[in-house]
């Protein structure tokens, strides 16, 4: 392995985790990459973890071959509205969900391959001014749409054939929802963060808002990435894309905050910052399991362990350029790193 292939651990005492390059996927068209994700895909009785890459006008599915190689097997063309993001559906096989739009999401579509004739199909699930969308367990999607006055928070169930079945609405808060997160430990609980920095908790079964709690920072538009409940408290990992540098804690990419849902009081638990000597603000990122990863303004990717708060790996820009995207695979043992030219690098995180 060259120095470029093996990401450096930020300090000697953190060499217990590393990112090791496994493979590189390259779209021959050199189109700009907008997102990357993984999906389980079954064919001929064999279910494999595949990679999905999104460019502005097409989505490609890559199947694994021997020796860490990948082969592009399907490409769905979406020529009318640009692709904004892939929406991972945690327990769904043979289905890719995508959000399309110009400045904000205007459509959510499901992409699939017909089991009858093998043709590629698309199914429109939702249209509107969609502010946030998240794939939930049990084949569901949640989205917030509309204006503040007529905001709609909707849960949509997705069938195996790629159709949207049941629809249920949740009570809208009087604030625009910008992000959602499922609550691990409470199957029927969902949280969302708002444009004026509240954390909203819903009961998914009844649609009730159980509480709306101030996040507690002056920074607007906090984004919730992961939530879990333990010992009667709600732990939430947040990012603050618009935060300004703060003397006391620098500029953490993520923070963990604990809320008491009964009293709406909260306090900071942990900051996830870069180690001394490294700089860069949070651009975008993802949290999965006990790991958080972020692309920074320096063009590097940083990875943190949620329990220790330590930065466990730093992936500097490589010879081809800065990183622009970072996603975890279905498990958090694999990291997908994307660049503007459409290249996607697969790293094992161990």
């Amino acid at each position: 392995l060259t120095a470029e292939q093996l990401a450096v651990a930020p300090s000697d005492n953190l060499r217990d985790r590393s990112l090791q390059l496994a493979s590189k996927l390259k779209n021959p068209s050199s189109s700009c990459a907008v997102d990357v994700s993984t999906v389980w895909w079954e064919s001929a009785g064999c279910t494999e973890l595949c990679i999905v890459t999104a460019c502005e006008t097409f989505i490609s599915l890559w199947k694994p071959l021997a020796s860490n190689q990948w082969r592009k097997v399907y490409t769905w063309h979406l020529t009318e509205i640009p692709v904004i993001q892939i929406v991972p559906l945690p327990d769904v096989c043979n289905l890719v969900c995508v959000a399309l739009g110009d400045l904000e999401i205007g459509e959510i579509r499901l992409l699939l391959c017909s089991s009858e004739d093998g043709s590629l199909k698309q199914s429109l699930v939702k249209t509107g001014n969609i502010k946030a969308v998240l794939g939930l367990t049990n084949r569901k999607l949640v989205s917030s749409s509309g204006t503040l006055q007529d905001q709609q928070i909707e849960i949509i169930s997705v069938s195996e054939a790629g159709r949207s079945n049941e629809r249920q609405t949740l009570m809208p808060p009087e604030e625009t929802i910008l992000a959602f997160a499922e609550v691990e430990g409470f199957r029927d609980a969902l949280v969302g963060t708002t444009a004026v920095n509240s954390l909203v908790v819903w009961n998914l079964k009844t649609g009730q808002i159980l509480n709306k709690m101030p996040v507690g920072y002056s920074y607007p538009a906090s984004i919730c990435h992961r939530a879990y409940s333990d010992s009667g408290l709600l732990f939430v990992v947040l990012s603050h894309p618009h935060a300004k540098e703060n003397e006391s804690c620098g500029n953490p990419a993520f923070r963990m905050r604990v809320f008491n849902p009964k009293t709406a009081r909260s306090t900071g638990v942990m900051f996830f910052s870069l180690p001394p000597g490294h700089s860069g603000r949070y651009l975008e990122g993802e949290v999965k399991g006990v790991s958080a990863a972020a692309v920074l303004t320096s063009g590097a990717i940083a990875v943190w362990d949620l329990f220790s708060g330590q930065c466990t790996a730093l992936l500097p820009p490589n010879a081809d350029g800065n990183w622009s995207l970072v996603r975890w695979s279905v498990t958090d043992s694999c990291l997908l790193a994307g660049q503007k030219d459409g290249s996607v690098y697969v790293y094992h995180y161990s």
Binding site: V201, N203, Q208, L210, S229, G232, L233, V258, N260, S266
Partner: peptide
């Protein structure tokens, strides 16, 4: 964090808030 920071904690917060919240 202590209970005094966050107020009284309930392990059954989800059920209790579901009973109290408007539906």
């Amino acid at each position: 964090c202590s209970e005094s920071d966050l107020g009284p904690i309930s392990l059954n917060w989800f059920e209790e808030l579901s009973t109290e919240a408007p539906s």
